[in-house]
């Protein structure tokens, strides 16, 4: 469904994404992981047209969509959420979601009805009239998902929708994501919460310093020494830093 090949972008001298190729099969629930600053969010931005890649291309449902504008990509059925949530502050939860629903629904009432049902799906049903700016972190993350889901996407790109949530909140979100997939939406998610990655995804790609270093079923990937090094190496460096500072 989604095929990216050789995707690259550099900011100044920093190769944020470096020759990344991967593919997401229709109906799948797959994930992209990697340490902080690995380039995951940048990958999403490249795929959905927010950045123009220096090289490489993106194919969605067989069509080349490299550097097509974000709204056009959304019209084609691929929608991303933002790691740093971007609510329409000052508008209610219902109004926020309705903007997404309007992608395929012209009529206002239809869009509001759709928005309301999506809100219930993601567990925001009791906060429809609340100002989006007043939601908790968990609420805003759900709003991100709801707004994207309301566009009836074929492929949903979720960027760390569980970051900042406590374990019980995470346990509430996991079934929501599963339900979305069961509703026929293909999902690619970026996640740091390994528990969620293990439980949810069938296949995972690991990004480190802009490069793909491994992929496979999450359990296998988690055993992969290259991956452990990528994560732990950084952890070690940090620990040494700390010890030095404390000394």
């Amino acid at each position: 469904m989604l095929e990216i090949s050789n995707l690259s972008i550099a900011f100044g001298g920093l190769k944020a994404v470096d020759a990344v190729s991967m593919s997401v099969p229709e109906g799948g629930l797959v994930s992209l992981i990697g340490p902080n600053g690995a380039g995951k969010t940048t990958c999403f931005a490249l795929i959905t047209g927010f950045h123009k890649p220096d090289a490489g291309n993106v194919k969605f449902c067989g069509e080349d969509i490299t550097a097509v504008k974000p709204f056009k990509i959304a019209e084609k059925g691929m929608v991303r959420t933002f790691q740093i949530v971007q609510p329409f502050a000052g508008q209610s939860v219902l109004e926020n979601i309705a903007v997404g629903a309007h992608l395929h629904l012209r009529d206002r009432q239809d869009a509001l009805d759709k928005a309301s049902s999506v809100a219930h799906e993601v567990g925001l049903g009791d906060r429809l009239e609340q100002d989006a700016a007043d939601l908790t972190v968990a609420g805003r993350k759900r709003l991100e998902v709801a707004r994207a889901l309301a566009t009836d996407p074929k492929l949903l790109l979720l960027d760390e929708v569980m970051a900042g949530l406590n374990p019980s909140e995470i346990n509430e979100v996991i079934p929501v994501i599963n339900a979305i997939r069961d509703g026929g939406v293909t999902i690619l998610l970026i996640e740091h919460v390994m528990q969620a990655v293990m439980q949810l995804s069938e296949h995972t790609w690991v990004l480190n310093q802009g490069r793909l270093i491994a992929d496979g079923p999450p359990r296998e990937v988690a055993q992969n020494p290259v991956v452990i090094e990528a994560y732990l190496g950084k952890g070690m460096a940090e620990r040494l830093e700390k010890e030095k500072r404390n000394a």
């Binding site: 329409f88 000052g90 997404g100």
Partner: peptide
């Protein structure tokens, strides 16, 4: 109003 409040977010969900 979506564009007013957040142009990027609006673009991501299909607003031109």
């Amino acid at each position: 109003m979506a564009v007013r409040d957040n142009e990027d977010a609006a673009g991501a969900i299909g607003v031109d």
